[in-house]
Design a binder for these strands. Structure first.
Lengths: 208, 208
DNA sequence: ATGGAGATTGAACAACTGTTCAATACTTTT
DNA sequence: AAAAGTATTGAACAGTTGTTCAATCTCCAT
């Protein structure tokens, strides 16, 4: 029987070359550019082998989706070697890092999101990963500002993620670099805002 | 010869039914769900008629893209019957309006964006519409706050659009309604911020 | 070397794709 | 009523798609 896609990590090198090829094609040409044949060609492998490692085309796409979700989660993984507030700051900065704002990654994310919108199956995987990501951000906020109740951390995390999504989506359209920088700053302000009022914004700096 | 897709407005009823069907399918099942046959079926029309009104599948998709772009631009069109600051406020609020935050519209936008990412042709149309949209927002900001130099208005518009994109993208994933509301408020703060410092954010509400 | 298990190939199949086109139906003009 | 123009149909075409499968190849334990 096939090796199944539940297999994590690097399998026989060929299997991961196939997955890599699929992600590359998806990122560059969208789902219509991903056929079993084009994947095989891109991976330098016979057609049959793609179906050997991935029973379905759906399984192949699911594997790609899993890889990207995994990657996203690493962005907000706690790093014990850093002070909590520095951890948070870096995680927020990573979103605008050069290696993340590449067309290849952003485009891949966009296509996967579009797929999730069209297919209930992908949608669930995606939604779960999205929730875990928000939880990750909330956990970082909580470590950096322990005085905040968890509920507030989740709130701030949601707000931050809205902006982050906006950042990378807009980055695809080639918006001003400076605007992205300002948006990142905005996420920092939300994260580090003092407890008092609503998160990180005071319209009137006047005194009571 | 065919009627061409340059034809704006409502043509023979059948033509617009076809376009409507295409947009519906695109929104619900993504580009792989849009075939000339499925469009014809959804529109209750023979296969040949789709190619009669739209020479290409690409032409059909372009028409859909045009419709959505047109719709987006109307969101920031100036409305002389309102005071400038009210115009701006309403435009910013419209993004979170119920009729816009529907899956149908958001999903359509997402798929078109994904298509633009895969096809240079769509990409240019999309980029142009995106620019016009930012210009529209900037113009509204400028009317509401005439003391701002145009450059600053564009800056604020860019920042606002980043958040708006984040809002509707995240809305697709079913994020907390409250978070969306807070994000909209944030766009208002950016728009209406006093001229002094950076746009709409003061980390410390202290006095000088 | 011999057997066997897994890896790899490409041909074959049925289903679907976009596009073309001759044939018809319907409207309007003459 | 005839002619002309447009709208509408579905069959036909060549190509592509995902999936299956018998046939090979590779490698390792025996």
């Amino acid at each position: 029987m096939g090796t199944s896609a539940v297999n994590s990590g690097e399998q026989s090198d060929r299997q991961s070359r196939i997955l890599e090829a699929a992600m590359d094609l998806l990122s560059r040409h969208g789902i219509s550019g991903v056929s079993m044949r084009s994947v095989a060609r891109e991976a330098g492998v016979a057609l049959g082998l793609v179906n050997y490692y991935y029973d379905d085309k759906a399984t192949l796409i699911r594997a790609a989706l899993g890889r990207v979700d995994e990657h996203d989660l690493r962005l907000v993984a706690p790093d014990p070697s850093l002070a909590p507030d520095e951890q948070l700051r870096r995680a927020l900065r990573r979103v605008a890092a050069a290696d993340l704002l590449t067309t290849r990654y952003l485009s891949l994310r966009l296509h996967l999101w579009a797929l999730a919108q069209a297919d209930e199956d992908y949608a669930q995987i995606n939604a779960a990963a999205f929730d875990r990501y928000i939880d990750g951000v909330a956990a970082l906020v909580s470590s950096a500002k322990p005085e905040l109740p968890w509920e507030v951390c989740r709130e701030r995390a949601s707000d931050i993620v809205v902006i982050q999504n906006g950042v990378w989506l807009t980055a695809l359209l080639g918006v001003d670099k400076a605007s992205i920088e300002r948006s990142i700053e905005r996420t920092e302000q939300i994260a580090f805002a003092p407890l008092d009022g609503t998160a990180g914004q005071d319209q009137e700096p006047g005194q009571p």
